[in-house]
């Protein structure tokens, strides 16, 4: 599904990613962990196509296509979805209209006409039930005045509607209490299938109790310095990141 080869990226001339190698296969869940400032969110943004980040070297290949030259929207059309750590508030645009526009623009890019209103409504109903979202919530302005939990649930709702091939969840657990965390994680698990893949970026192990990864990577100073099974997450939870830093620096 996704292959990243020797990826270097910088922002405003400052190198953040220093040679990332990563392969995510269809049906897999990968966790990327690491201390603050290790480049986790940068990696997510670079995969999603944020223009402020400059790829200086390396390749990002999604289903055999190099996507490095593609715009953020083209990557979305190709099936990449980024759930934001801090979803943006957009006053005046309702959740429903936003998602309708996103779906129809994606269809347009594929040469399809607008989704019939009836089908759209049905899909919205199904997916909002799946995520235990109150319908009233959907007519509110996107993320405006939403609680932390509502924002993250709304991200997963959009993911459910857009049905991406590769979903990247950037610190989806931050700002969530345990109940909200469970709802969000259950939502992701229900959307998980053998035909898609998920990258979970997180600082803590707690989210991985609910979304169980196949592979755990540790990112440090812009490089993946260690990979392992889900037990690696437990180890990190117990011992912190210092031993990783020591290993790397040794």
């Amino acid at each position: 599904m996704l292959k990243i080869k020797d990826l270097h990226a910088s922002v405003e001339g400052k190198p953040i990613l220093n040679g990332i190698n990563l392969e995510v296969k269809t049906g897999e869940v990968h966790a990327i962990m690491g201390p603050n400032g290790s480049g986790k969110s940068t990696l997510a943004s670079v995969i999603a196509g944020k223009e402020e980040y400059e790829v200086t070297k390396g390749e990002i290949i999604l289903e055999n296509e190099d996507i490095e030259e593609l715009s953020a929207e083209e990557r979305a059309h190709n099936g990449i979805f980024l759930s934001f750590q801090y979803p943006i508030e957009i006053p005046g645009v309702s959740v429903t209209n936003f998602i309708k526009t996103a779906i129809n623009e994606t269809r347009k890019a594929k040469g399809l006409g607008d989704m019939p209103a009836k089908d759209m409504l049905k899909m919205i109903r199904e997916k909002s039930e799946l995520l235990e979202i109150d319908r009233k919530f959907l007519s509110r302005s996107l993320n405006e005045g939403f609680s932390g939990g509502e924002k993250k649930r709304n991200e997963v709702f959009q993911m459910a509607m857009l049905e991406p091939k590769l979903a990247i969840l950037d610190e989806t657990d931050s700002g969530l209490d345990i109940d909200a965390l469970r709802i969000v994680a259950n939502g992701v698990n229900k959307l998980k299938s053998k035909d898609n893949a998920v990258i979970v970026i997180t600082h803590y192990q707690r989210l991985l109790e609910y979304i169980v990864p196949d592979v755990v990577h540790v990112l440090y100073e812009g490089r993946i310095v260690k990979s392992g099974g889900k037990e690696l997450a437990h180890e990190l939870e117990e011992k912190g990141y210092d031993w990783i830093k020591e290993e790397v620096n040794a």
Binding site: A48, G49, K50, E51, S71, A72, E73, R75, A76, H77, F81, L82, F84, P87, I88, I90, P91, G92, V93, F98, I99, T101, A102, I103, E105, T106, A109, Q158, L162
Partner: peptide, 23 residues
Amino acid sequence: SALFYMRSRGIPKKEAKALLMYA
């Protein structure tokens, strides 16, 4: 940041700008 957010959901730049201005 709002533009990137919208684009990351598949709404092209021009349409994203228009939607923001309309809102």
